[in-house]
Amino acid sequence: MSAPKVELYTKFGCGYCFRAKKLLDDKGVEYTEYDITVGGPKRDEMQERVPGARTVPQILIEDKSVGGSDELAALERAGKLDALLGL
Score class of each variant (00 low, 15 high):
M1N: 12
M1A: 15
M1T: 15
S2Y: 10
S2G: 11
A3S: 09
A3M: 14
P4E: 07
P4Y: 06
K5M: 11
E7S: 00
Y9C: 11
T10F: 04
K11M: 14
K11F: 07
K11S: 02
F12E: 13
G13D: 06
G13A: 14
C14W: 02
C14I: 10
C14V: 12
G15F: 04
F18G: 10
F18P: 04
A20W: 00
K21Q: 08
K21F: 02
K21T: 10
K22G: 14
K22T: 15
L23R: 05
L24A: 04
L24H: 04
D25N: 13
D26W: 05
D26H: 03
D26L: 09
D26S: 14
K27F: 02
K27D: 10
K27L: 15
K27A: 13
K27I: 08
G28P: 04
V29D: 02
V29P: 00
V29Y: 06
V29N: 00
E30N: 08
E30H: 11
Y31K: 06
T32P: 07
T32M: 11
T32C: 02
E33H: 09
Y34P: 07
D35A: 01
D35I: 07
D35C: 14
D35P: 03
D35Q: 12
D35S: 04
I36G: 03
T37K: 02
T37Y: 01
V38H: 14
V38R: 13
V38K: 05
G39R: 00
G39N: 03
P41M: 06
K42Q: 14
R43V: 00
R43F: 09
D44G: 12
D44M: 04
E45M: 13
M46S: 04
M46N: 09
E48V: 09
E48W: 05
E48D: 15
R49Q: 05
R49K: 13
V50L: 01
V50P: 03
P51S: 06
P51L: 06
P51T: 06
G52Q: 02
G52H: 08
A53V: 03
R54H: 15
R54A: 13
T55C: 01
T55W: 11
T55Y: 11
V56N: 01
V56Y: 08
P57N: 13
I59N: 01
L60F: 15
L60R: 02
E62C: 12
E62N: 11
E62L: 13
K64H: 07
K64L: 12
S65I: 12
S65H: 05
S65G: 08
S65T: 12
S65N: 10
V66N: 12
G67N: 00
G68D: 05
G68N: 02
G68P: 01
S69G: 10
S69C: 15
S69P: 06
D70S: 10
E71P: 09
E71W: 07
E71Q: 12
E71C: 04
A73H: 10
A73L: 03
A74E: 09
A74F: 12
A74N: 06
E76P: 01
E76G: 05
R77K: 15
R77P: 08
R77L: 14
A78Q: 06
A78R: 15
A78V: 07
G79E: 11
G79R: 01
G79I: 10
L81M: 06
L81D: 00
D82Q: 14
D82G: 07
A83W: 00
A83Y: 05
L84D: 09
L85I: 05
L85N: 07
L85H: 01
G86L: 09
L87A: 13
L87S: 13
